[in-house]
């Protein structure tokens, strides 16, 4: 079987879910005959028909609100918001209803729905197309926020998200959409949510990250390795609910932690991870926790984007700084 990239893996998972479960419907702007602006839904319209692959009017709040209604009435809607920059109108529905309906009704009604959105920078897109606001969503109890970092994890985690009985926001790092390809078995096997993935083992420093920064962390780890520093890479993957144990176990082993995210620093999810280590892992630390993040600015337009995005160089620097402590 040919190797596929992340967009194709998303497409494969959607097709598999639609095939396996007649209650799954896909909705969003241009997801039908056009196959989505990134082609994530390519071919689904012809294969599954206009009753299941639904081109909505251009109304993001509606897409989220309809998904709540559909889900509560027995369907499993998987909607696409074209870019994370346009996800904000959905937050009213995510915060007020999707994340609360099960709790509000003591389980009588629930919201098994997924909102997918490409997020993050690195592809020189127009304004509003490069944000990483995952922390905003991770702050909402009752919601799951899941971010894949490879084609196979996109496939397995998206299946998990669609099959989950509760709402999931699935953020796809668009810098990785076509960055690399790998063999993905269409075996219908979901990957676990609510925990992360240890993608590289190492004894010297923990690199805790997600999304497109996983790739930068691997590049950094390769450089560090040539200098005799072995990094452990944790892809947090599910930001909410966050699994603290996995990070704490790694920090206990390495004693050093760099948290890397593409989102701006203040109130970023790195703060939560750092605070967790301060509360529960302080005695394991040989050095302060360090963050490598974007600066607290508006994402600049394309010409300054590379200055804004964190990269392997900053991660190498941060890890090297930590090694100096002992």
């Amino acid at each position: 079987m040919a190797e596929i990239n992340m967009v194709q893996a998303v497409n494969l998972a959607l097709a598999r879910a639609l095939e396996d479960d007649p209650s799954v419907v896909v909705l969003g702007e241009d997801v039908g005959i056009n196959g989505g602006v990134f082609r994530a839904t390519e071919g689904l319209y012809n294969r599954f028909g206009q009753d299941r692959i639904l081109d909505t009017p251009l109304a993001e709040a509606l897409i989220a609100g309809m998904s709540v209604g559909m889900a509560a009435a027995g369907l499993r809607p998987v909607s696409e918001i074209q870019f994370m920059g346009f996800i904000y109108p959905t937050i009213d529905q995510l915060e007020c209803h999707a994340s609360r309906l099960r709790n509000r009704t003591r389980g009588r009604l629930s919201c098994p729905m997924v909102i997918r959105a490409p997020y993050g920078g690195g592809v020189h897109a127009p304004e509003h197309h490069s944000e990483s606001r995952e922390a905003m969503l991770a702050h909402i109890p009752g919601l799951r926020v899941v971010i894949p970092s490879s084609p196979s994890r996109a496939y397995g985690l998206l299946l998990a998200a669609i099959r989950d009985p509760d709402p999931v926001v699935f953020l796809e790092p668009k810098k990785l959409y076509r960055a690399n390809a790998e063999h993905v078995e269409d075996d219908g096997i979901a990957l676990p949510m609510d925990t992360g993935f240890v993608l590289r083992e190492g004894d010297d420093v923990s690199l805790v990250t997600w999304g497109a920064m996983v790739q930068e962390s691997f590049a950094a780890a390769a450089t560090l390795s040539t200098r005799g520093i072995e990094a452990e890479i944790i892809d947090v993957s599910t930001l909410n609910p966050f699994d603290p144990e996995q990070v704490l176990a790694s920090v206990e082993k390495t004693g050093r932690c760099v948290i890397i995210h593409e989102a701006v620093r203040t109130g970023g999810f790195g703060s939560e991870i750092g605070a967790t280590i301060a509360e529960h892992g302080l005695m394991s630390l040989l050095a302060p926790v360090k963050r490598v993040t974007a600066p607290d600015t508006v994402v600049p337009l394309a010409k300054l984007e590379s200055c804004f995005m964190p990269g392997a160089d900053s991660i190498v620097q941060a890890a090297t700084d930590l090694m100096a402590y002992s």
Partner: peptide, 10 residues
């Protein structure tokens, strides 16, 4: 209102 549209679709 939008929930009603979703319920009606279902």
């Amino acid at each position: 209102f939008s929930h009603a549209a979703g319920v009606a679709f279902a």
